[in-house]
Write a protein that binds this DNA or RNA. Structure first.
Lengths: 210, 210
DNA sequence: GAAATATCCCCCATAATGGGTGATATAAAA
DNA sequence: TTTTATATCACCCATTATGGGGGATATTTC
């Protein structure tokens, strides 16, 4: 059976190029192409796509919001972002929104076809630089101004643990925890738990609990 | 200049196979091979590797702990995990520990050589299934028993925000926030902030702030 | 020998938390 | 249509948590 694909991109040239490339492969049916999310979403049920290729910069609803909306309607649909830039915040936002992979607009025709096949095979197609970015998001940074013990305490704080709980788990007194936290706040120049967590996350000084 | 590689694997056959493959490429010098982490770490300064290939299951210090220790001594060294299994918790732990990529033991010789080249080029070599796993870790699940509002409140809780702060940001009263939290605790069958965050993270009902 | 670190103690006040028991209005589902 | 879920808000209550201030000691590191 042929896979149903829809393409959402405000650039007609790109829409038509993608259509050509994919149709020539013979494995796909390009059921529709759209220049904006609104139209695409209105026809989602009728189109019933297996794969959506969506641009990130779109007039009106953005590609990221669009990804969220499409996944809400069709949870099993594979969404691949077509993009020119490799901006990290955009990448993370679209992955969080439910995109499965990234296709760089300047990629070769072969690479694009391969990306779609990888997605269908259950993979997560993306360029080397993007996968590197994603992997780095897992890695704790070593440039924290905090001591080992302070980092540890902050890690626990970021997990929502109370002072008493931290004290128990580290076999130290609650007062010691308080002292560490005072020093953490001083070093990070913050005055609250929330800000400390925000700064730590921003700088990847704590590990996300995946 | 040739890149310096060390190999840590308790299986002699694999050590020697990897040595052969890589030496034949001509671009690499295999400075040493070890059957355990302890010996490798003892000789790190002398070996000064650019790339470390390390098995995940090792006698004594595990590959994951080893990755942490090696990165502490040589922060710019690229560490690639050699593994047979694609267990998600192991994958995340080693990425968090600082590994850059994953090489599957059963991969073809060509794939292995290519992985090392990708790593040197600044990429994050890993199999399709592993990259999929990593991408999925970004994606919020939709199977939460919580209502939209409750999920939103829990998201804020997981960011360390206080009831008052949440109330302010959502333009609702503190009492309403409390009610939502009571309902969240009831639905998740927990009695504390910490447990709620743990359950939510485990099920990916909240988004990590990357 | 000074600086950083890790540990602990006291005081103090306020803020935050969580359990209970309500209420109201709306929307969705049975 | 009646029930259920949701979202909103209120008051009572007690305990815990938080954060700022001060100080202390021992070890390690530079």
């Amino acid at each position: 059976m042929q896979n149903r694909i829809i393409i959402i991109d405000d650039n007609q040239l790109i829409r038509e190029s993608l259509r050509m490339i994919l149709q020539s492969a013979g494995k796909y049916v390009i059921v529709s192409t759209y220049s904006n999310c609104e139209d695409a979403i209105a026809n989602l049920e009728r189109d019933a796509p297996d794969i959506v290729l969506i641009d990130i910069q779109l007039p009106g609803i953005s590609g990221i919001e669009g990804t969220t909306l499409i996944r809400k309607k069709l949870p099993n649909c594979i969404i691949l972002i077509i993009t020119v830039s490799e901006d990290s915040s955009q990448v993370f936002k679209s992955l969080s929104a439910g995109a499965s992979g990234y296709i760089i607009k300047t990629a070769s025709l072969d690479t694009i076809k391969k990306s779609i096949e990888e997605a269908l095979a259950g993979g997560a197609p993306m360029s080397l630089s993007i996968s590197k970015m994603v992997v780095e998001s897992f890695q704790k940074q070593n440039d924290s101004p905090l001591s080992d013990r302070e980092s540890q305490v902050l890690q626990y704080i970021s997990e929502g643990k109370s002072y008493s709980k931290i004290a128990d788990e580290l076999f130290i007194s609650k007062e010691t925890v308080k002292t560490h936290i005072k020093n953490i706040y001083r070093k990070l120049e913050v005055v609250s738990k929330e800000d400390a967590i925000r700064v730590a996350n921003k700088n990847k000084w704590v590990q996300n609990t995946h």
